[in-house]
Amino acid sequence: GREKFLTVELIISPEISDRILIIEDVTDLVKAQKAQAWKEVARRIAHEIKNPLTPITLNAERIRRQFKKGNPEIEEIIDKAVDSILAEVEVIKRLIDEFRKFARLPLPEKKLSDVNQLVRNSLEPFENRVKLKFEFEDIPQIPVDKSLMREVFINLIENSIEAGATEVTVSTTLRNGKVFIVFRDNGPGIPEEIADKLFAPYVSTKEDGWGLGLSIVKKIVEDHGGKIYTVDRNTFVIELPV
């Protein structure tokens, strides 16, 4: 059958005993929003690919021009031009690899796991790059895909380090049937200009970043039935069901 998206609103009036349940089909609206989002992704990909194509074209034209002139230094010119072309091809390859990863993430294969231990094992290799502080509560094992969740934790810690943080505190708590994993750092914080679109594809403040990392993180967490959000410029919260 067709996938449907519905909004449900319950209206209770203290003046009457009846209750009104309003169900609205917003399938077309959601599909339109998704289509617009993918149009934006396509536009950004085209822009990112166009950037390295310019030096590739210029270097190829230079080789042809100098070859026709019979430049005696043509071998050196070709070597330098080819090095530049290969570097730009690598940029395009990285972009394609990142997009493929974003578009074709596997569904999680969840197994009961000790999240505290998973967080510690994932982040301890970074102790030589940043001061780590763990504040763990006793929480039950929960169903997660260890490999995918490790990617989430590593992405968050790397973002903190690259932003200039020198200390990261990771805490876990259990509240109302949910496990909360909180990452807090002492870095400069999320820039205000991207705060409201932080998890959108191709949003990044890094000169060499594609802006797919947090989009991938969000998808992994949501595929686990959870949520990820910020509570301030230095704090990420992951909610996972028990």
Rank of each mutant, 00 (worst) to 15 (best):
P72D: 01
T54F: 12
A46E: 15
K50D: 13
R94T: 11
D79I: 01
E61Q: 07
D97L: 10
D83W: 06
N71K: 02
R100Y: 15
L86V: 09
K69I: 00
K93E: 14
L95D: 05
F99H: 09
I96T: 09
I85S: 00
K68Q: 03
T57I: 12
F99N: 08
K93W: 04
L95I: 04
I74D: 01
L58N: 10
E76G: 09
I96F: 02
A60D: 08
P106F: 02
N59G: 00
A103Y: 07
A60S: 07
S84T: 08
T57L: 12
E48F: 13
F99C: 11
Q66V: 01
Q66L: 05
A87M: 08
G70L: 02
P108N: 06
F99I: 14
V91Y: 11
A60C: 06
N51T: 15
R104A: 14
H47S: 14
F67Y: 02
E88K: 10
L95M: 04
E76Y: 11
R62M: 05
K80G: 11
F102I: 04
R65H: 04
I56P: 00
E98C: 07
I78V: 05
I74R: 02
L86D: 10
D83H: 06
I45K: 07
N51A: 15
P55Q: 01
R62K: 01
L105V: 01
R43K: 15
I45G: 08
P55Y: 00
V41T: 07
K69W: 04
I85M: 03
V91E: 00
P72N: 06
K93I: 11
E75H: 08
I85N: 05
I49H: 13
I74P: 02
K80R: 10
F102E: 00
R65L: 00
I77V: 03
E75K: 10
A81E: 04
F67R: 07
L105Y: 04
A103S: 08
L107F: 03
P108H: 03
R65A: 04
I74Q: 04
V89I: 15
I78D: 00
V82K: 03
A42Y: 15
E48H: 13
E88N: 12
A60W: 07
H47L: 15
I74L: 01
V89S: 11
P108Q: 02
S84Q: 09
L95P: 01
L95Y: 00
N59W: 00
H47C: 13
I49Y: 14
R44M: 14
R100P: 07
F102G: 02
I85C: 02
E73F: 10
H47W: 14
E76D: 12
R62L: 03
R100F: 15
Q66T: 00
I63G: 05
E61F: 03
R104G: 12
Q66D: 05
A87P: 02
D97P: 07
R44Q: 15
K50C: 11
